[in-house]
């Protein structure tokens, strides 16, 4: 059976192609333009957002949720939110999501080796105890929410995470349970035309 895993998980910027007709930007209403601008700096050039903006108010609320969960100040570090998002995207098989967030993690935290292995080998690749605790929790909550247990929370606390930070990590996982399902099922990752193989 074909799987979205089959594309592989290259650690480079990818493009995304929609399987569903997207909005023609020339015909966008002022409200649609506003929602695109609120959603992402490059949303007006991105087929993913041009697709989703056809339900403008749903996208407006979702972008607000996404941006506060992934980029809101304080709490869990942005790198650790990205780590959880990348592990889940790798597990679910969303190459586009995984590459975006793996690259963002490296940008913020360094450690390209960890991300390269996570992308190539998957979520079981060896790592230090703190990222391990985050990835293990993320993977369980991603796959079957009830599979995550108090023991996973205890491990995160042992690694020095406060409950507010644990909630941030969990919200990142919840958000990517959402994001992966949109990206994976409404279109697919494609190699950029100008990229080296």
């Amino acid at each position: 059976m074909p799987s979205t895993h089959d594309f592989g998980f290259p650690m480079q910027s990818l493009d995304w192609a929609s399987w569903v007709p997207v909005l023609d930007l020339d015909r966008a209403t002022p409200n649609e333009i506003k929602v695109l601008e609120e959603s992402h700096p490059k949303a007006k050039e991105n087929p993913y957002y041009l697709l989703l903006v056809q339900e403008a108010e749903v996208l407006r609320q979702r972008s607000k949720l996404f941006n506060t969960i992934m980029y809101g100040p304080r709490g869990a570090s942005r790198a650790e939110r990205e780590l959880a998002a990348t592990a889940e995207s790798r597990l679910n098989g969303c190459p586009y999501c995984a590459s975006v967030h793996a690259l963002r993690y490296v940008q913020m935290k360094g450690d390209p080796d960890l991300m390269a292995r996570l992308m190539e080998q998957g979520v079981d690749t060896p790592m230090e105890p703190r990222p391990r605790a985050i990835v293990d929790f993320a993977v369980k909550l991603a796959a079957t929410p009830s599979a995550a247990t108090e023991a996973d929370i205890a491990r995160l606390r042992e690694q020095g995470l406060e409950d507010a930070q644990i909630l941030d990590i969990a919200m990142s996982v919840a958000m990517f349970a959402n994001a992966n399902r949109l990206m994976q099922t409404l279109g697919e990752a494609v190699m950029p035309q100008d990229a080296a193989p």
Binding site: L59, P145, M175, N178, A179
Partner: peptide, 17 residues
């Protein structure tokens, strides 16, 4: 439909957390 399903998968993980 896709946003609805994605949102419900978000909500379920929030409640579990």
């Amino acid at each position: 439909l896709s946003q609805l399903v994605a949102h419900m998968n978000f909500m379920a993980r929030m409640l579990a957390t």
